[in-house]
């Protein structure tokens, strides 16, 4: 793998390669370049997982023609497909080096890129929603009990916006969660369940089930389950499985033209 990345960089197939490198015992995302080729020898593939594709979109904003190579797990592949669909990256500018999903007891599960499942306390199991449950288990609570349990989870929210900020497929320049009429700036707890449901609705056809949002949630809200539910509905209504390929999403039936602004976006003034 290391030789192949070096070869890609040397022959000019890619300008930079996004991977991981240990810095003071922390595996951190690292941008390998032709100029510092010897660093590629230190490349590691895990175990930490960052959204390399999000870093790639930020680089493409600066230089729309940059060719980027990156380590890609299954979830990264799905995220990239969504980013191609929404014109955030160009398919021809990305080369992926495929690696296994995160090491986990759940590795045989093809969609899973979770690290070890987190332990869940007894109180949360009693009144909230265990993050390790399946969608079917949650549906079994029924509407009334389900609502109570979800509201318990939502009222813990400290409105850090971490779920949005870490999301590899959140790139809108204007975010509904910043809309004063939907989510008022200031109050804590945020307007629930509006905050979480607005985000859930916007994840329809976007969420690639990588689990980074839940990973980043300081309050352990089972966000992944929430968005899985939305994705399940999209699959049922539109027969569309988000991120499996780079074709247009079902929502494009709403109009012929892509209304999203294509790259490059001009940097904000004063930069």
């Amino acid at each position: 793998m290391i030789d192949k990345i070096k070869f890609w960089l040397e022959e000019g197939k890619i300008d930079v390669f996004l991977g991981y490198r240990e810095v003071e015992n922390h595996p951190l995302p690292w941008c390998f370049t032709r100029e510092r080729l010897e660093e590629v020898d230190d490349l590691v593939a895990g175990p930490a997982r960052y959204s390399l594709e999000k870093i790639a979109t930020h680089m493409a904003e600066e230089d729309p023609d940059i060719r980027i190579g990156m380590l890609a797990r299954d979830c990264s592949q799905r995220a990239l497909n969504v980013l191609y669909v929404w014109n955030q990256l160009k398919r021809e500018q990305i080369s992926t080096m495929d690696v296994n999903c995160c090491p986990s007891r759940l590795k045989e599960h093809p969609d899973c890129s979770y690290l070890e499942p987190a332990g869940v306390g007894s109180y949360k199991k009693e009144v909230g929603i265990d993050n390790n449950l399946s969608l079917e288990d949650v549906d079994r609570y029924g509407p009334e009990e389900g609502l109570h349990r979800w509201m318990y989870e939502f009222q813990k929210c400290i409105k850090c916006y971490g779920c949005r900020n870490i999301c590899p497929v959140c790139f809108c320049r204007e975010c509904s969660l910043d809309n004063e009429e939907l989510v008022r700036a200031g109050p804590l707890i945020p307007d629930i369940p509006v905050f979480h449901l607005v985000r859930a609705v916007h994840m329809a056809g976007r969420c690639i089930d990588c689990g980074l949002c839940e990973d980043a949630c300081p309050m352990d809200i089972p966000l992944r389950l929430l968005y899985q539910k939305v994705s399940r509905i999209v699959l049922k209504l539109f027969d569309y499985k988000t991120g499996t390929n780079a074709d247009q999403p079902p929502f494009s039936i709403l109009g012929e033209r892509v209304t999203l602004e294509p790259k490059p976006i001009q940097p904000a003034s004063g930069a």
């Binding site: 850090c160 916006y161 971490g162 990973d215 980043a216």
Partner: peptide
């Protein structure tokens, strides 16, 4: 452990 508050973000 991979989490931040709104100020940190």
């Amino acid at each position: 452990e991979g989490k931040l508050c709104i100020k940190g973000w």
